[in-house]
Design a protein around this nucleic acid. Sequence first.
DNA 1: GCCATCAGCGTACGAGTCGC
DNA 2: GCGACTCGTACGCTGATGGC
Length: 428
Amino acid sequence: MRKVLLLRVGIDKGCGGSLSPIFPDRSFEYIPIPESQPTTDPRTYTTILGRAGVPLARYVKPALAEQHPHFDPEFETCTYGDPTPLKRRQLLQLVPGDLLVFYAGLQPQPPVDPARLYIIGLIEVESVHDLWAPSASDLDTLRSKIGNNAHFFRVTPDKGLVIVRGNKARSELFTKAVPLGDGADNILCDLSELVRYSGSLRRAVGHWIDEQNPVHALEDWLKLGPMNLVGDKARLFSYVVAHDYGFAPNPDSGYCTLACCKPRIRKSAKKGDWIVGLSPARFGPPKLCYVMRVSEKVTFDQYYHVKRFQGRRDNIYHRLPNGRYEQLLNDYHNLENYKRDTQTDWVLMGSLFWYFGQQMIEPPKHLLGSDIFKRCRDRRKITDPEAIKGFVTWLANAYRVGVHSTPRDKSSQSRQSRKESERAPLEC
DNA sequence: GCCATCAGCGTACGAGTCGC
DNA sequence: GCGACTCGTACGCTGATGGC
């Protein structure tokens, strides 16, 4: 049975002090961690050009610019190695045909969104080499055979090194990053259900995916991405986002939530449905404001009390002992919004979302006639799975997940420091 | 000031589900 | 099989807004 070992690689806050960049179109740079040992590799972050033609030094701390990077994994000859006890044990369990799937924390550029974890490449195992106590001649022989992994350039050979050699035809550093984590370094809950793996990916050890179906599910995710999440019973609700203050929807902190306004959508939508926000007519032909997949549906009270949602700007309602809702003081809604907001008790949350704010995007030509981009009163429901798949495929291929810009309407009206007496209700 | 457009909401109606 | 009930959807009314 084929196994997959998920491994975190690349520079990060704990090792190097920064993150590799990801750009709006999902392209990214793979920046290795700094080399911690004396090395014969002459390259530095300044001399290495990234795939966008910019020296990697641009994305690392100035103090690292002239340091040597530790290229591991490397995708020229497709190898990965590690001498530390935990990973060494994991690598020795691999057999030909297994997959090493590499993920990294990537920081959006421009930095309008928190970093997330993305899958950046993979190696299909061809052979595993255990170099418990290699001599210099052993290393020379292997170097000539299996390439230029950073461990081969170290002046003092690593004791206990395990090198995995990949099938070059079936291994690659992706050109576009594939989403893996939410804003809190947990596996995306949408993907978690497919691969039956949950929890934090922060730990610096490998994570096994080793049941037959989940391995297929992960491979499908690598090939097709979020389109895999559109089932035959998928539904998509589209509506016009009349005003976008970053309140409804609220794309803060790695989650997108719809907690106020749109009571019918909040009531109707279920886990797995897609929500699409379009621009109002005053901005010309319909453009995309945001898209989210409903990954959780919680009540106002659950939303209010769950720790990870506390402090969000749209977390303003909770039930009192008498059954009514209390509205907390906030900069967006007052008691005139109370009736509509509390028509339903539900809050929609998505960890897989695209929020474009001021940079609303036009639909591609092949989707111009789609019902998804037709404005309607209140909201429109789409139930054609092929239409939804086509839309999600285009979106997920063209844009990285997360926030792409600040809220559309925020600049025109400051919501800061309003006194209670000045709080006019906002439509959204 | 008039008119067109648009978003929100109330209401009616149809489909689906459940109990008898 | 029938009726009651729930839920989802379409339609039309209302008020706000913006262009002329």
